[in-house]
Simulated scan of single mutants.
Amino acid sequence: MAQQDDEEREFDLRWADRAEHKEPSARARMLAARWKENPPRPVPFRGDPGPSAPRRSSWLSTTIVLGVVAAVILLLGYVRFRAPY
């Protein structure tokens, strides 16, 4: 029975592929309607990325992370030193 279903499905796919008119997807219809009123401007293949924010030095980030880790270690050591046994 399953083999017969597969054959029928394959036949349906071949029938659908031979169709003279294929309906566009919903996205294609939406874009066609939008572009009819307001066509898109041409965009170069690799557009200018534009200005970007200056990057921080990786050393600055490393220093901040190591400083925070050292501060936490010192704080935990101080708390343990002060805690009564």
Score class of each variant (00 low, 15 high):
Gly67Lys: 00
Phe81Tyr: 15
Tyr78Ala: 15
Trp59Glu: 14
Pro39Thr: 01
Pro51Asn: 08
Ser52Arg: 11
Arg27Ser: 13
Asp12Phe: 09
Pro24Cys: 07
Glu10Pro: 00
Pro49Ile: 05
Phe81Val: 05
Pro42Gln: 06
Trp59Lys: 12
Ser61Trp: 00
Ala16Arg: 15
Glu10Met: 06
Gly67Ser: 05
Thr62Ile: 05
Leu66Lys: 02
Leu31Lys: 12
Ala19Pro: 00
Glu23Gln: 11
Asp5Ala: 12
Lys36Asn: 13
Leu75Asn: 05
Arg29His: 07
Gln4Asn: 08
Pro84Arg: 12
Glu23Cys: 03
Pro40Glu: 07
Val68Pro: 00
Ser61Thr: 07
Val79Glu: 07
Phe81Lys: 10
Thr62Pro: 03
Glu7Tyr: 06
Ala83His: 14
Ala70Met: 13
Asn38Val: 09
Phe11Glu: 14
Leu31Thr: 03
Arg55Tyr: 03
Pro42Asn: 07
Arg41Lys: 14
Leu60Gly: 09
Leu75Gly: 13
Leu31Ile: 10
Ala26Leu: 13
Arg82Asn: 11
Pro84Val: 12
Ala28Thr: 12
Glu23Ala: 14
Asp48Arg: 01
Gly47Leu: 01
Glu7Met: 10
Ala19Leu: 05
Gly67Ala: 03
Ser57Arg: 03
Tyr78Pro: 02
Val68Asn: 00
Asp6Trp: 11
Ala33Val: 04
Pro84Tyr: 10
Ala33His: 06
Gly67Arg: 03
Pro44Glu: 03
Tyr78Phe: 15
Pro44Asp: 04
Arg27Gln: 15
His21Glu: 06
Gly67Gln: 01
Arg41Ala: 15
Gly47Phe: 02
Ala70Lys: 01
Ala2Lys: 07
Ala33Ser: 09
Tyr78Gln: 09
Arg34Cys: 06
Val79Asp: 01
Gly67Val: 03
Met1Trp: 11
